[in-house]
Computed example of a mutant assay.
Amino acid sequence: MTTSAKARIIAVANQKGGVAKTTSVASIGAALADLGQRVLLVDLDPQACLTFSLGYDPETLERSVHQVLLGEVKAAEVLIETEEGPVLLPATIELATAEQQLLMRTGREQLLKAALAPLARQFDVILLDCPPSLGILTTLAMTAASGVLIPLQCETLSHRGVGQLLDTVYDVKRMTNRRLKVIGVLPTLFDSRTNHSRLVLDRIGADYGIDVVGPPIPKSVRFAEAPAAGRSILATARSSKGAAAYREVAQALLGTETAATT
């Protein structure tokens, strides 16, 4: 990727919580930074888990992506440097009121896209951490993005929600963002010891006709330990299988971009 190119924007989305979505954003972001990419992470979840996981207390922040979406400040004025390399556009609990506040805004679906446009040449990759819902914030993310990555826990109930998410992707593609593509499913919380996890992994691509971005991310207590340190697993357990898996995923994402531009 050349430094003059516009950033590739990826929405990381799943309306089901507990699928390692935020963990994936933080870990992929750190892995991409290790690969020399200029990375921006955008926290669009009112729970602000990404912001907290990267070492910042949302309750102490005076400005966040909430004010950016309302047009009160520019995104560049809110950016925070993280210790691992990626830059963060943080969230606070105020974001919980965004859907109601944006409901009557004309062209609301384009607000995030417009806010990120001035940053497009400052970064190589922008990862959007969507909330665990299919509301307006997820729609804003998909409208701004060129691709959607779907973290999916390798269990049946998580598997069943993919169809609903894909319906939302296709609606956004038809109404607000024709260039939006599904990058694929990222299997998470994978336990290779169980037949159930292996069965779900085998079925994902065939059932929905979408790619599986690998390798699957293994289930590990190391992921729960990382947010307490305000770092990703690439910093807290660099030699772990989970960290290695996310490095491979980051390389795979760069490979998909290369293939798309050749």
Rank of each mutant, 00 (worst) to 15 (best):
S4M: 13
A5Q: 14
A5P: 04
V12G: 05
T22V: 08
V25E: 02
G36F: 02
Q37F: 06
Q37T: 10
L41Y: 02
V42Y: 01
Q47I: 12
Q47Y: 03
Q47E: 12
L54M: 15
Y56W: 10
L61C: 09
S64D: 08
L69E: 05
G71V: 13
V73K: 04
A75L: 07
A76F: 04
V78N: 06
V78C: 04
T82E: 02
E83H: 10
E84G: 05
L88N: 07
E94D: 15
L95G: 02
T97L: 06
L102A: 12
R105P: 00
L112M: 09
A115E: 01
L116Y: 06
L116C: 10
P118M: 04
L119H: 06
A120R: 08
I126G: 01
P131E: 11
S133P: 08
L134T: 05
I136Q: 09
I136K: 04
L137S: 06
A141K: 02
T143R: 00
A144E: 01
G147R: 07
G147T: 09
L149A: 11
I150L: 04
P151Y: 08
L157H: 08
S158H: 09
R160V: 11
G163C: 05
L165N: 01
D167V: 12
Y170F: 11
K173Q: 15
R174M: 12
R179W: 03
L180G: 07
G184H: 09
T188H: 05
F190E: 05
F190K: 06
F190L: 09
F190Y: 15
S192F: 08
H196G: 06
R203G: 09
D211M: 08
D211Q: 12
S220L: 11
A224F: 03
A228E: 09
A229R: 11
G230M: 07
L234W: 06
L234T: 13
R238C: 07
S240M: 07
K241A: 15
A243E: 02
Y246M: 10
R247N: 11
A250M: 04
A252T: 15
G255D: 14
T256E: 13
E257F: 08
T258Q: 12
A260E: 14
